[in-house]
Design a protein around this nucleic acid. Structure first.
Lengths: 204, 204, 204, 204
DNA sequence: TATGAATGAGTTTTCATTCAT
DNA sequence: TATGAATGAAAACTCATTCAT
């Protein structure tokens, strides 16, 4: 009985993900407000009503896409970053994880970078929960770097984290909006170079 | 006759701006898609139909807010930046102008940072027109700095411009979303410090 | 004073007719319900509000076009028909007058044949007033013909009048709707031939 | 499975017809442009939105009423007329079919005779498709009659067909507009008498 | 669980008409 | 008389959501 339930759970979870991917695709193409739930259903190959067996309503689809992607990213970050010792390499790896997720899941990325920003309500919630978590990881990297004497101690770690997020998020948005698919991951090294060393010449 | 016309033109332009500010306020509060045109009209103190004497439709309101703000910013940037000689100070001034506009026109800023991003169509147009113009200004600053030996010559100026925009735009978005109104302009100096000098210690 | 008034009356009446012709043109092109009063005003070369100095409202424009054209036709019919002696020629002349008016004023004819039919209310009023008048003229021709032994006495004159109107009106509608401008007046003679002599061969 | 589908198809088609009849009733009473879709829905006993599951839009309702009635008439005409031998009786039967349909479906007839005429666009399409079909049937009757020596050979069959249509259509319009319900079918014989024999006495 | 027909609330937009100038 | 900016009522249509099967 337990096994059977777990199988059913697996099937349920699988169909949930199918719907979620369909929603990401549809939202990415048409924009959240112009997208129709029936488009999502058709794309997922199910009936309209079935969507509501897995999600509360249309908005739940949107936020679930977000939680799903954010969860994926944060769990990878939290397992991979601590293994690395050099804080400069931690930053580089963090950026690589961020960009490679964006690049791999373009539909999700469009929703993430564009559609999710529509709602002040959502963004306010986001910035106090998920984003706080994201910034915390960065902040700890910076603080560790400062303790080790690798990063300038007079810098505000919180601010550095925000700047880093701003850069990554901004570049992701630009990549999503430009049709030419220059690899995003390839831009990590030059970007990290600026972030680590600044734009000025000698620093003497 | 000429004078009379100019007065009428002035009145027309004035009312247009009243409607635009009302739209910014309403869109900022409710989000573009949830906002009703009649809310905009009521906020502007006019009848619903009057909105359509000044704007083609609801979307025209949205994009007009954008053109208006962007025009204001770019004209200030293009008149003030060339006066400054040191490229590092040019960058600082650019950031100050960006942030002070955001701070002064919070409603417009919310529309700008959040609502306008909803439409892939719009964003694609934006990134090939206005944004290109914006990035061009930054790029020229960087190139000038490189010619003068102030900025590292091996950096890709286009990339540096994108990174700078990413930082400014990202910080603006964060400020807009956080209700606590820490001054945004006050963050210019520490941010520019990182951008100019990097986060690493000696750079030796 | 009297003369001056009469001149002003003339100017007033003239402008009324300009507006009426503009309305006929616009209604003919777009259909009454899709036509805008401001289109009529622009076509007449006046301001929107001015229309309302000459006509009660939009519907008044429509019915005035009708009265104008119908009045023109009926006055010609009533002055020309009595002069003719042979009732068969009276019928022919009647048809010629009807068709030549249609042909000369195509815009008015379109309104007359198509747009005016939209309103049951109007058509009911029409069929008990103007149409009754029109049918009366025909009926008197038929009755005269019967008295003179030219038309079969067993025919119901009222019915004959209706049939005649049906033919004229139907052919007018068809002409208006077919773009090829075969002359409508040219069809009078063959049509009258059928009406007078029937379609069957010998009548023996 | 096949049976079940056919039942569902039947239900669908049945509901379509209910809506169509409701639309005819409402359009007949208020006129197409003044009629509200919600009136049609209420008359049909369904929700407003349901109308749009069966018809593209309001205009689709109008033209569908037409196709429905015209199809009904033409199929009866094409099956019944060929059976009759005497061309004079063919004409009489054709007129009877036309008038009895009008009389039986008064709402549809009003839409047909009045409302459908509003749109030049529609009427132009009508006169080149359905009407052409209708006239063709009449024309063939006349040509057959001429070959058999029953109808005068010098008459233009196309013109005779148009005249016949003009009479039938005109009388139908008049009947629809006059509230007194003198039977329309009863007028067939005297009308056909005129059409066959003309109004003049001897034809000698 | 899955379906999809039915619902009906909700909003943009148009345009006839008014009225201060 | 003439103007034309402003009004605001009114309706077609969409689509998220429900629920009987």
């Amino acid at each position: 009985m337990e096994r059977r339930e777990s199988i059913e759970e697996g099937a349920r979870s699988e169909r949930r993900e199918i719907i979620l991917r369909a929603a990401a695709k549809v939202f990415a193409r048409s924009g959240y407000f112009n997208a129709k739930v029936s488009d999502v259903a058709r794309t997922a190959g199910i009936a309209d009503g079935t969507v509501y067996l897995y999600f509360r309503n249309k908005e739940d689809l949107l936020t679930s896409i977000f939680s799903w992607a954010m969860g994926e990213f944060m769990s990878r970050a939290k397992s991979e970053i601590p293994v690395i010792i050099d804080p400069r390499e931690k930053l580089r790896r963090f950026a690589q994880l961020h960009f490679s997720l964006i690049e791999r899941e373009r539909d999700v990325a469009i929703v993430f970078q564009i559609e999710l920003r529509h709602s002040t309500k959502f963004m306010e919630k986001f910035s106090t929960t998920y984003l706080a978590d994201y910034l915390q990881v960065l902040r700890e990297i910076v603080e560790a770097g400062q303790r080790e004497g690798k990063f300038r101690s007079q810098l505000n770690p919180k601010l550095v984290a925000k700047v880093m997020f701003g850069i990554l998020d901004g570049m992701a948005t630009n990549w999503v909006l430009s049709r030419k698919s220059n690899s995003l991951v390839m831009m990590v090294d030059p970007m990290i170079d600026i972030f680590l060393n600044g734009v000025t010449t000698s620093n003497a």
